[in-house]
Structures are given as structure tokens and as C-alpha cells.
Design a binder for these strands. Structure first.
Length: 206
DNA sequence: CGACCGATCGTCT
DNA sequence: GACGATCGGTCGA
């Protein structure tokens, strides 16, 4: 591993405050090694899903199934699922066993393995949409829903701190995307973005 | 720029 | 049998 880069440990993921974890993930590096190739990107957008009481969460009301059961595991593994039949959305499972908290990674700024990302997506390595949006970044990094449950402290998928400091004032909390069905919970400020970063999904701003 | 729509299929009812 | 924690293209103002 590259000097000066620290892989996040289980203690990071097992904290009780999923909002703090979602915020803390901004600026970290998401790294995958799929097909023997390393690809990575800096996290610039996340969303917290706060368990049984959160109407936007797959685990709302403690719903549990083969797919969502991964969310109930001890924090520190991946929850990847297929959305709309074609997009693989990558989440980080947090908190302790039995508490289905998760953080959806929604956008990255590409850091390494750009050529491989381009190959996987059929785009050019400079394409802004390469890792912008949860479906796009999963394709670029080779994340598939079959990888759900993968240990985040292993070699295949992990998140690291390379010492990059994000000014607290540049992290903005907003409502989550695409969860209009969640009634009053749709308005909760559970989405965190690195304000002004061009890889943040949605409207261009900042 | 905003609104709309088709693609596509595993999962849950 | 219906429905998405999306994306990218198209169409109209």
C-alpha cells in the first residue's frame, strides 16, 4: 500500500452515528481491486440511511430479506444491490450487528485507474460522468451486486484516508435524491456533498 | 434548462 | 405482477 494512506478500520464503521460517518466519508478514497486492477476515487457525495425508523431505507420497519439482510451485519462490509434492473448501488454498512444502518456512496472524483474505468464504462477517461452518480461510479470501479457482503477491511474493496483535509465549511447537508416516496423523511438533510466539486451529482452548482 | 421517457431485472408481495 | 436509493437521450420552451 502507498505510504501515507491509512485504510479505515472497523471502529470507523461501527460507530452509532450514521450521519457522522456519512459526513466523515467525504474526502476519503474508495479503492477497489477487481480483475487484478486497482481503481480508486475520492468520495465527494454520500447519503445516510438511518435504519428501521427511516422511511427511505430498505430496512424501514426492520424489513429483512435475502437482499437487505447484509445491512444488519456488523459494520464494515459492503451492501450492493441492483436498482432499476441495471444499476449497481454501493453502500457501506455501519453500526453494530442487528442495527441496519448504511451509507450510500453517490459520487467520486476519479483518482487512479482512469483507463480501466473508461474501459468498463465505454466512456473516455476524462468524461465527467465516469464516477458521477451512484450507478456510474459502481460501473467504473467494477462493483457488482454479487459483491454485497464483501469485507471493507480486506484487499478487494476498502476505503482509505490519504490525509486530505476537507474544510468543514465546504461540506453541505441536503435532502436525499430519489426518495420522494419516503414521505416526511424525504426532506431530512441526510445527503452530504463536497460543495462546488464538479463530480457531485444533480444540478451543477458552486 | 426542465420535463419526460425507455431500458431492464432482481426482489418482494 | 409491480416496482425501484438511476441514467442518458430527446423534445419543447
Amino acid at each position: 500500500m502507498v505510504k501515507g494512506i491509512k485504510k479505515l478500520d472497523y471502529a470507523f464503521y461501527r460507530r452509532a452515528d450514521v450521519l457522522a460517518i456519512a459526513r466523515d466519508l467525504i474526502g476519503k478514497l474508495l479503492v477497489t481491486r477487481v480483475d487484478q486492477v486497482l481503481t480508486s476515487g475520492r468520495i465527494v457525495e454520500t447519503e445516510a440511511y438511518a435504519g428501521p425508523s427511516d422511511k427511505a431505507s430498505h430496512a424501514y420497519g426492520n424489513r429483512k430479506s435475502t437482499r437487505t439482510g447484509v445491512m444488519y451485519r456488523e459494520g464494515g462490509c459492503a451492501y450492493v444491490y441492483l436498482c432499476y434492473g441495471l444499476h449497481h448501488l454501493f453502500n457501506v454498512v455501519t453500526n453494530r450487528e442487528g442495527i441496519p444502518h448504511a451509507v450510500l456512496i453517490r459520487a467520486l472524483e476519479p483518482v487512479s485507474g482512469l483507463d480501466k474505468m473508461a474501459e468498463r464504462t465505454g466512456k473516455k477517461s476524462g468524461d465527467i460522468s465516469l464516477t458521477r452518480g451512484p450507478g456510474n461510479l459502481s460501473r467504473a470501479l467494477g462493483l457488482r451486486h454479487g459483491m454485497s457482503g464483501t469485507d471493507l477491511c480486506g484487499q478487494d474493496i476498502f476505503i482509505a484516508d490519504d490525509g486530505t483535509a476537507v474544510p468543514p465549511g465546504s461540506i453541505l447537508a441536503t435532502p436525499r435524491i430519489g426518495v420522494g416516496y419516503a414521505a416526511e423523511d424525504a426532506a431530512l438533510p441526510y445527503r452530504f456533498i463536497w460543495q462546488g466539486n464538479k463530480y457531485v451529482s444533480g444540478k451543477i452548482s458552486g
